[in-house]
Design a protein around this nucleic acid. Structure first.
Lengths: 122, 122
DNA sequence: CTGAATCCCTGCCGATACTG
DNA sequence: CAGTATCGGCAGGGATTCAG
């Protein structure tokens, strides 16, 4: 056993979860599920905007001017698919669609904070 | 302001850090720094192995049999470059190189745990 | 044993144009 | 207003081969 200066969990995840010992990338591994949700350029910025409250398509375009319609559409579809956000269409004209984080999506807050803290460290 | 069922940080990162309000992907954003460190297939599995202690190239190949030499080499180089792990060559023959997490790398433990917890949630 | 070099294939992302 | 359709460039990653 090697010397370790600070304590840290030797075992990641739940103690007896078989997904903590997979020997190749697996879509059922919680870590990969989370990283997959955050995957792609612009994704975390879109989530950040929605952490401030619900936003329309145009709101997001204005907040992130360099983000193209297509990629924004892709990101919103992906995040909706993985259960991070919900889409709410308003009837009538002009069409308005609001996006908001689901409860599950809100729980990404601490995750992003953990990433921030590590990236800001040292 | 929208209704929110649970409290969460409205602002991510440090209160007055300008990197918390960037409007496009930026390499100086701590969140992106962290995600960049974890980027790439197999990366988290390699880190997981090293969280258990130092490992040689062959150790890692045996632990992750489906991982090719080239990609393992790429991952080790990348993780070394971003300061997550250190390479220790042993003089003599046959050549032996051990990889171990840096203190900074060890601090990825909580980050991976946060990702796990979120991915395992619901 | 520990890698680096090469090749090819695939998937992402940006730009542009178009629709309900 | 809120998207979709299409295309092209480029980087990621796997297999194989070669080197220190």
């Amino acid at each position: 056993m090697t010397h370790q200066t600070v304590g840290h969990p030797a075992q990641l995840g739940l103690p007896d979860d078989p997904r903590a010992t997979v020997t190749e990338p697996s879509p059922s591994c919680p870590v990969e599920i989370a990283l997959d949700a955050l995957r792609g350029r612009w994704t975390t910025l879109v989530i950040r905007e929605l952490l401030h409250g619900e936003r329309s398509f145009t709101d997001l375009r204005q907040a992130l001017p360099a983000l193209s319609d297509k990629v924004l559409s892709d990101r919103l579809a992906h995040l909706t698919e993985v259960g991070v956000l919900d889409r709410h269409r308003q009837p009538g004209w002009p069409p308005r669609t609001h996006y908001r984080l689901t409860p599950h999506g809100h729980r990404l807050g601490p995750v992003l904070q953990a990433l921030w803290d590590w990236g800001a460290g040292r």
